[in-house]
Simulated scan of single mutants.
Amino acid sequence: MRILLGIFAIAIYGGITFYLGWNLRAWLNSLQVFRWPILFWSVLFLTSFGYFIGKLHVLLTPLTVLGSYWMFFLQYGLMLCMIANIIVFFTPLSTKFVGTGAVGILLVLLAVGTYFAYTPVVRQATITIDKPGEDMRVVLGSDFHLGLLSGKGHLEKFVALSNEHEPDLVLLAGDIVDDSPQRFIDKGMGEVMESLQSTYGVYGILGNHEYYGNEIPEFKQAMKESNVEILMDETLLIGDRFYLTGREDLTNKKRLALSALQPENKELPWFVMNHTPDDLDEPANLGVDFHVSGHTHKGQMWPNQYITKKIFELDYGHRQKEQMHALVSSGFGFWGPPTRIGSQSELWVIDIQFNK
């Protein structure tokens, strides 16, 4: 059954790729610049499967880059092609005119999306917890996907913004690397991460992509050398002031229930990191005060945010559920195409005030 489903999915994907190629060929023909059809279709299908082919060997890495950008053209190219086909069919406008307009819109979207992906913003929130404590500032980052396209320069932006706000605590809520930590190690990103400044330290958790890479021991060691403590179903008492729990990702079907990670002292604040915001009821019922997640990317590219809103109770931003403050970040990096439409790379600065 899985093989049949895989064949069906590849057939559908191949059909969409052919549809896009057919439209691109029609536009190029209208400009009288279409040449070498065999080469055209070969390059097109190689690019469409490039993201996966490029993972097979380091020498094929350029195909991963092409494949990443292809995901952008797949989504917006498909929408624009359907609109263009309708316009050409029902109006006297030519394929040349409509096609050129569609390509122009696509390039503008690519430029805008690239800007929003590589130009992070700082989101701020202030929350109040009805427990004893001294006011503190937390910086939250997630979904960096550090690797090929989200690299050292992008990480340097995060470190600079975080240090500028002088946090007491830095939380990295999963998908820190894009599958494998090898590029993080080879490109010296650990030296950048190591320069993060925080009163109580820097803590992270695993996301689904750390599991996809299947190099968790290597990842944990790289983070340790970068002064980032990775919590895997662990609860720590930090500075005798608050408890911090880092959950295993939902990808791990054997992860512990949150009830097994409850702190001993119920009077102190309890913070929880869970990469995927799959369940807010359990932490709210158990008395968690501050719950942070990532994973959703806020859909990353419009209109995908309408899908994430349907899947998750909270797919983005801050919400109070009973006594618990939940916050979901759209992420500092990106997955697949280095573009964001309808979202922007971000880090959160959360000022926590205590009532008692």
Results as ranks from 00 to 15, higher is better:
residue 117 A to G: 01
residue 266 K to W: 02
residue 37 P to I: 09
residue 215 E to A: 07
residue 349 V to Y: 07
residue 110 L to E: 04
residue 87 I to G: 11
residue 50 G to S: 02
residue 153 G to N: 14
residue 180 S to D: 01
residue 19 Y to Q: 08
residue 64 T to W: 00
residue 173 A to V: 12
residue 344 Q to W: 01
residue 295 H to N: 09
residue 159 V to I: 10
residue 312 F to K: 14
residue 17 T to S: 14
residue 59 L to M: 10
residue 321 K to W: 09
residue 89 F to I: 04
residue 186 D to M: 06
residue 264 E to P: 01
residue 233 D to V: 00
residue 299 G to L: 09
residue 354 F to R: 07
residue 211 Y to S: 05
residue 263 P to A: 10
residue 341 I to Y: 02
residue 221 Q to K: 13
residue 190 G to C: 11
residue 52 F to W: 14
residue 157 K to P: 10
residue 192 V to T: 15
residue 344 Q to D: 05
residue 54 G to W: 00
residue 354 F to I: 15
residue 82 M to Y: 12
residue 255 R to E: 08
residue 324 M to G: 10
residue 28 L to T: 04
residue 239 G to L: 08
residue 195 S to D: 15
residue 179 D to F: 00
residue 271 F to L: 08
residue 315 D to Q: 09
residue 296 T to G: 10
residue 338 P to I: 06
residue 8 F to I: 10
residue 192 V to H: 06
residue 67 G to V: 04
residue 164 E to H: 09
residue 224 K to V: 03
residue 313 E to A: 10
residue 94 S to L: 10
residue 104 G to A: 15
residue 157 K to I: 11
residue 137 R to Y: 09
residue 149 L to H: 00
residue 176 I to L: 14
residue 318 H to R: 05
residue 276 T to K: 11
residue 100 T to C: 12
residue 310 K to H: 07
residue 222 A to T: 03
residue 46 L to D: 05
residue 212 Y to C: 05
residue 51 Y to H: 01
residue 325 H to E: 08
residue 212 Y to P: 04
residue 223 M to L: 03
residue 191 E to S: 14
residue 274 N to V: 03
residue 334 F to R: 00
residue 98 V to Q: 07
residue 309 K to H: 15
residue 63 L to S: 01
residue 64 T to Q: 03
residue 68 S to P: 04
residue 127 I to K: 07
residue 132 P to S: 15
residue 175 D to A: 01
residue 91 T to G: 13
residue 188 G to V: 09
residue 23 N to G: 14
residue 64 T to M: 00
residue 4 L to D: 01
residue 323 Q to I: 14
residue 83 I to C: 11
residue 54 G to L: 00
residue 238 I to R: 08
residue 84 A to D: 09
residue 17 T to M: 12
residue 262 Q to P: 04
residue 248 E to Q: 13
residue 55 K to C: 00
residue 5 L to S: 12
residue 205 I to D: 03
residue 199 T to M: 08
residue 16 I to Q: 03
residue 111 A to I: 06
residue 288 V to Q: 03
residue 340 R to V: 02
residue 4 L to P: 01
residue 6 G to A: 15
residue 286 L to F: 11
residue 241 R to H: 12
residue 123 R to I: 13
residue 302 W to H: 11
residue 337 P to M: 04
residue 159 V to P: 02
residue 196 L to T: 10
residue 119 T to K: 10
residue 20 L to A: 10
residue 195 S to F: 05
residue 218 E to L: 13
residue 75 Q to D: 01
residue 261 L to I: 07
residue 123 R to D: 07
residue 332 F to I: 09
residue 142 S to W: 08
residue 133 G to Y: 04
residue 225 E to I: 13
residue 213 G to P: 03
residue 223 M to W: 03
residue 212 Y to S: 02
residue 102 A to S: 15
residue 19 Y to W: 13
residue 143 D to A: 06
residue 206 L to F: 15
residue 166 E to A: 03
residue 58 V to M: 05
residue 189 M to Q: 01
residue 282 E to D: 11
residue 53 I to K: 02
residue 199 T to I: 05
residue 141 G to Q: 08
residue 138 V to G: 01
residue 345 S to R: 02
residue 293 S to V: 06
residue 154 H to A: 07
residue 204 G to V: 04
residue 149 L to C: 02
residue 128 T to D: 09
residue 151 G to F: 00
